[in-house]
Design a protein around this nucleic acid. Structure first.
Lengths: 199, 199
DNA sequence: TCATTTACTTACATGTAAGTAAGTAACTTG
DNA sequence: CAAGTTACTTACTTACATGTAAGTAAATGA
């Protein structure tokens, strides 16, 4: 296999296992077996586990933030439409993880790795923090614009609403998913929408 | 040490390590060292790791649900007072974990173990699910009563609000805590309160 | 075409986890 | 006071985890 193919294949499997099982649960042995290569080969390409996870995290954060900025860009769509788009993104992610077998929940890689922060490199931890600030900034900007446009309900304050949305979005598999499946997450977003949006 | 003392001491340390480090991060070795006993002694008292975690989970769920039912009992207090009481409980838990060294976040044992669900016994998983239903039931009852009393804002629907509260409460260390500390969680609760409460 | 680099594998070192079998000192009880 | 029983410890085994050193076949390039 050519060099970039193998590197990418390793990162793909690693992402999947990291999201499902966390830092400790994504072993080089499992990744290697899945790909039919040896553990040492992963070391050859990435050096060590922290370095591999850093790269996976980097890619994930970049792709995710781009997608979120797209959905929450303040042009063109109403606040309600943005929240509906968010539901669509979440549904897609949920279905992906359910399709791939395993009754597991669609944890966000970020919130998952935050629980293993002590095992990450300093750089890895810094990336988690950075993702958090960026995520919040995206929501804050969109809600601020929505407020200017008079799209918020009288009780809703833009900064509060941004924080709540960030908490829900970052941590997209809270209690509510264990029993109710995706429908519950959808209900949470819609409920928030009704509370935020001007009626 | 007398039998019940040792058992309880093991469970106390185990709870602390489980909340901080998750299932894999709470090793018998660490628990034993902390207490100045041997790993084998823990096996003597509990049989194995899954059994120990089951007991810790059982105790935690029971205590937590009793405390939550107390706060959210529908007599005597307004919805706003209940949310303020909830903030108080969260602050206490946050301070406990920060006082005990470690910059770690005050994860709920439940949401933490939910990420390691595959390592738990079937009984353990069932306990997680049960906790989830109970938590939601508590909020749903309180919000329903609040609605009857006319305490909700026009945009807030009681079932939606209960689900959002459950999501925040169950998962009390989302993104928002990593940078802002407890103040952010407080802001989330207060923001939700403003959106829910009749002004 | 010979030397070097690339992309691997094999084999091993090291650390750490859970779990267990066998022994023991102290307390309990008939 | 002799015979358990209780509450442990010691000394293992087994199973994986990351990581590394040494070797190799195939491609590359001077």
């Amino acid at each position: 296999m050519s060099e970039p193919d193998t590197r990418q294949a390793i990162k793909d499997i690693a992402l999947d296992l990291l999201v499902r099982n966390g830092y400790r649960g994504a072993s080089f042995g499992d990744i290697a077996e899945e790909l039919g290569i040896t553990r040492a080969n992963i070391h050859y390409h990435f050096g060590g586990k922290q370095a591999l996870v850093e790269e996976v995290l980097e890619d994930y954060a970049q792709v995710t933030l781009v997608a979120l900025r797209q959905v929450w860009s303040t042009e063109n769509s109403s606040l309600g439409d943005k929240i509906e788009a968010m539901i669509g993104v979440s549904r897609k992610r949920f279905q992906h993880f359910n399709a791939a077998g395993e009754s597991g929940q669609p944890w966000s890689l970020i919130s998952r790795l935050r629980q293993d922060a002590d095992l990450l490199s300093a750089k890895g931890r810094q990336m988690l923090d950075h993702f958090g600030s960026e995520l919040l900034a995206i929501f804050a900007a969109a809600l601020s614009t929505a407020a200017e446009r008079g799209e918020l309900a009288p009780n809703a304050q833009p900064d509060d609403a941004a924080l709540i949305l960030a908490a829900i979005a970052d941590n997209a598999a809270p209690i509510t998913l264990t029993e109710g499946g995706f429908e519950r997450l959808e209900t949470i977003y819609r409920g928030l929408k009704r509370m935020i949006e001007k009626s």
